[in-house]
């Protein structure tokens, strides 16, 4: 099946080991599949893939415009959109948490042509999680390790193979030409039973935050100690599947220019610096607070769901062990006291 896709599409699999950016199609943390590397696809690591799928929808960087400033060039100063590949790209091994992150990022990017174009040409083939890590907390955020939300094809392991769920038109197109055996009823009901056993994920204790007074959360004493420990690097925001902030800049080298959109992080002082020199989030503690409150308060207030899928990457990789689960516990405790 994968081999068939590889003939017509660009297929990516999670890069298990450190891989150099050998080809222009390389995406950080993912590698392009060629016939020799099919063996790489399995086994997937337990829990989330090393890098999130964010990079396929929100590349670092995205070239918005290109231009030349070369003297005597007939097109000098003319801005053009770069030619974009329209090839379908298939991403294999997507975990349910990452699939959900695409839907969450889609909320603010509803009208963003670049994000939408990338969504159009990307198909996500997901694998449900049979096992989870101790850092996984998708169920707390309203997701589930067996979810198919946001995926085009959802694969779950059965006793003797895989159950393939077709979740979208793109997914249907992927399996259209393949001869696949119809799934036995028993497998379908078994999956449904496993899903039901997980309970209703949308009812979370976190929902108390949504109704709570912002002021209480904003002035909570916990930010002081968090801000003191945080080193304000961008690791959490860059590995996070649901952090979507960007900045735009023009780069010109030897008369060739491009306007790029690249990842920015609310952890950086430059992020909120005004032209006037004023910085409304000039202190570390303000920036640390902003990241958590954006995920747990500002975003849900505006769009509904929390801007976190519980993949646990930031929990694992934070250099100073700031654990969003502990932050959530503290905040819930705070609203409960109130």
């Amino acid at each position: 099946m994968i081999e068939e896709w590889n003939k017509v599409h660009v297929v990516y699999v999670p890069a298990m080991e450190k891989q150099a950016a050998a080809s222009p199609d390389w995406a950080p943390g993912w590698c392009r599949l060629d016939s020799s590397s099919i063996a790489l696809t399995f086994p997937l690591p337990i829990g989330p893939t090393p890098a999130s799928v964010k990079t396929f929808f929100f590349p670092q960087p995205e070239t918005l415009l290109t231009y030349t400033l070369e003297n005597n060039h007939p097109d000098k100063g003319l801005m053009r959109e770069p030619e974009r590949s329209r090839d379908m790209q298939v991403v294999l091994g997507v975990r349910p948490c990452d699939a959900r992150s695409v839907l969450l990022n889609n909320l603010p990017y509803q009208e963003d042509q670049f994000f939408q174009a990338n969504r159009q040409r990307t198909a996500l083939v997901g694998f449900s999680c049979d096992q989870t890590l101790s850092t996984c907390f998708c169920t707390r955020m309203g997701g589930s390790p067996l979810d198919s939300e946001g995926l085009d094809l959802a694969l779950s392991r059965t006793e003797d193979g895989f159950l393939i769920e077709v979740c979208s038109e793109k997914g249907e197109a992927l399996v259209a030409d393949l001869e696949l055996a119809p799934a036995p009823e028993s497998d379908i009901s078994a999956l449904a039973a496993r899903r039901n056993a997980g309970g209703n994920p949308s009812a979370t204790e976190l929902d108390s935050l949504k109704g709570s007074e912002l002021g209480t959360l904003y002035d909570a004493p916990l930010w002081q100690s968090l801000g003191e420990a945080c080193i304000n690097c961008g690791a959490c925001t860059f590995i996070c599947p649901t952090c979507y902030c960007f900045d735009i800049q023009d780069e010109v080298v030897r008369g060739q220019g491009r306007r790029i959109r690249y990842w920015d992080s609310c952890m950086f002082p430059l992020y909120s610096l005004h032209t006037s020199g004023h910085n409304p989030r000039g202190q570390k503690v303000q920036r640390t607070r902003n990241r958590f409150l954006h995920k747990l308060k500002y975003f849900p207030d505006r769009f509904g769901p929390f801007s976190c899928v519980g993949c646990g990457r930031c929990v694992q990789d934070c250099p100073v062990n700031i654990d969003i689960r502990e932050v959530m516990d503290d905040l819930i405790h705070l609203t409960a006291v109130e």
């Binding site: 891989q19 670092q60 080193i231 304000n232 690097c233």
Partner: peptide
């Protein structure tokens, strides 16, 4: 050198720590 630094995501953790 190129291989070692190819995976950098520019989070500046090295600098900030």
């Amino acid at each position: 050198f190129t291989a070692e630094f190819a995976t950098c995501i520019r989070c500046y953790a090295c600098r900030n720590a």
